[in-house]
Structure formats: structure tokens, C-alpha cells
Amino acid sequence: MHPSSRFQHNNKKPFVRINNAIRAREVLVIDSTGKSLGVLPIHEAQQRAQQQGLDLVEVSPHANPPVCKILDYGKYKYSLSKKEKDSKKGATKLKEIQLHVNINEHDFLIKLKQAESFMAKGMKVKFNLFLRGREITHQDLALNLMKRLIQDLAHIGQTDQEPKLTGRNISLTFIPLPANKRLLKYNLSEVEANKQKPQEEKDKTEKS
């Protein structure tokens, strides 16, 4: 158990009071099983935590009365850190792909392969298409191109909006389908090639 007078804080994150650092006279206590013990005097709440070899952690300091939990502070701190890391990962799971209204078929296929590869890993994909200069007269081509993306990527992702032109820009965000429903179409040949490599290496070994 942590020293009774210790509390955690740094310049970036609000501190978390634990044990004797908790200033409230009374607190609402939640035990280690998640059961509410009701409102207790702070000294009684601290004693209950000590008896269990755990910490009394102030989890909602602004509540009235403050809410405290009896738990292992080390595990609690790890859990908070993991949630923060997962949140940061989630924030970076959006990949952006640029399109041009006059993109040729070969380059369009490359964009499809990129998007499929990202979504296969659970990432969101945002397509951006900007109409330059006189390209603004080709709005229909641009919108049709984005609608084609919806059809060509339906096997692995979906969008909850229709492509719309805002000024000179069209953007469309795809959300990957659930993992058990995602299919590969444009990267399938590479997957098959990787599966064949072990067999080819095995054949070479047997011949040698």
C-alpha cells in the first residue's frame, strides 16, 4: 500500500489524492468489489482500506460528498494510463487519402488498395478531393468518383453520408466494417502470395 500521506500529481495532469491526503471529512465509499458502503467519516474509510491492505483513492473529488474507492492504487494508475494510450491510438486511427478529379484507373486502384489496407487494420479512411481552377466545372465527375468509392469499398467499409461539394472540396470518411465482416479484394493477390511463400520455400528445401 502507498504511504498514507502521499498523493499523485504532475504539471500536466490533476493530482489524485489517496489515503491521508484526502481532505474531506466524509466520503462516499465504494469497496473493492464495486459495492457502495455509503457515506463514512474519512478516518473510518481509511481504516477499512488499510484493513484490506489497499488504498483509499479519491476518484470524484468534486462530488458532494467526494467519492472514494478502496483499491490497489498501482493497478488503478496502470488502468488510467492504458485508457489514455488507447485514446491516443484511437485519435491517430484516421488515414487521409488525396484524390484528383482526373485520376487515371491505375492510380485509382492504388488508392483503393491503400484504403482497403488501412481499413483491414481497423483504421478510418478519409478521402479528400479538391477542385482546382477550372476543375470546378467538373463537379459531376468529382461526385461520381466519390460515389464509386462507396461501391468499390463496400466489402470492407461504409460511410454514413453522401458525398457533398463544400466550396471546392469534397470529403468522404469510411468506417471499417466489423472485423469478421471485412473482406479483401484489391490486396488479395498479395495475401495469397504470402501464403504460397512458405510452401515454395519448403519445396526448395526438399529439392536441395
Results as ranks from 00 to 15, higher is better:
2 H>T: 08
2 H>Y: 12
3 P>L: 01
4 S>N: 12
5 S>T: 12
6 R>C: 00
8 Q>K: 11
10 N>P: 10
11 N>S: 14
11 N>M: 08
14 P>N: 11
17 R>T: 03
17 R>P: 06
19 N>H: 05
19 N>T: 03
24 A>T: 03
24 A>N: 10
26 E>S: 12
26 E>D: 07
27 V>W: 06
28 L>N: 15
29 V>C: 02
30 I>N: 04
32 S>V: 03
34 G>D: 13
35 K>P: 00
35 K>A: 04
36 S>L: 04
38 G>Y: 06
41 P>A: 12
41 P>C: 01
43 H>W: 05
44 E>A: 11
45 A>V: 03
45 A>P: 06
45 A>K: 05
46 Q>S: 08
46 Q>A: 11
49 A>W: 03
49 A>N: 10
51 Q>W: 02
51 Q>G: 02
52 Q>D: 06
54 L>Q: 12
55 D>F: 06
58 E>K: 10
61 P>H: 05
62 H>F: 04
62 H>T: 10
64 N>C: 00
64 N>A: 03
65 P>W: 04
65 P>L: 05
69 K>V: 14
70 I>P: 02
71 L>I: 13
75 K>D: 03
77 K>R: 14
78 Y>Q: 15
80 L>A: 07
81 S>C: 03
81 S>Q: 15
84 E>S: 10
84 E>C: 01
85 K>V: 13
86 D>K: 15
88 K>D: 03
89 K>Y: 05
89 K>V: 10
90 G>A: 05
92 T>Q: 11
93 K>F: 00
96 E>V: 14
97 I>W: 12
100 H>C: 00
100 H>D: 01
100 H>M: 02
102 N>F: 08
103 I>N: 09
103 I>P: 05
104 N>G: 01
105 E>V: 00
106 H>S: 08
106 H>N: 07
106 H>P: 00
107 D>F: 02
110 I>T: 09
112 L>N: 04
113 K>D: 00
113 K>T: 01
114 Q>P: 01
115 A>S: 12
116 E>D: 08
119 M>V: 01
119 M>R: 05
120 A>I: 08
122 G>D: 08
125 V>G: 13
125 V>N: 07
126 K>Q: 14
129 L>S: 03
131 L>K: 09
132 R>L: 05
132 R>Q: 11
134 R>A: 12
134 R>I: 07
136 I>P: 02
139 Q>P: 03
141 L>S: 09
142 A>L: 01
143 L>V: 15
143 L>N: 09
144 N>L: 11
146 M>P: 07
146 M>K: 13
148 R>G: 14
152 D>P: 03
154 A>K: 15
157 G>M: 02
158 Q>N: 09
160 D>N: 14
162 E>W: 04
164 K>W: 00
167 G>L: 08
167 G>S: 10
169 N>R: 15
171 S>P: 09
172 L>W: 09
177 L>R: 09
179 A>R: 14
180 N>P: 06
181 K>H: 06
183 L>A: 06
184 L>S: 13
185 K>L: 11
186 Y>Q: 07
188 L>K: 09
188 L>Q: 13
189 S>Q: 13
190 E>G: 01
191 V>I: 10
193 A>I: 08
194 N>F: 07
196 Q>A: 14
201 E>A: 10
202 K>F: 10
204 K>F: 04
204 K>P: 00
208 S>I: 12
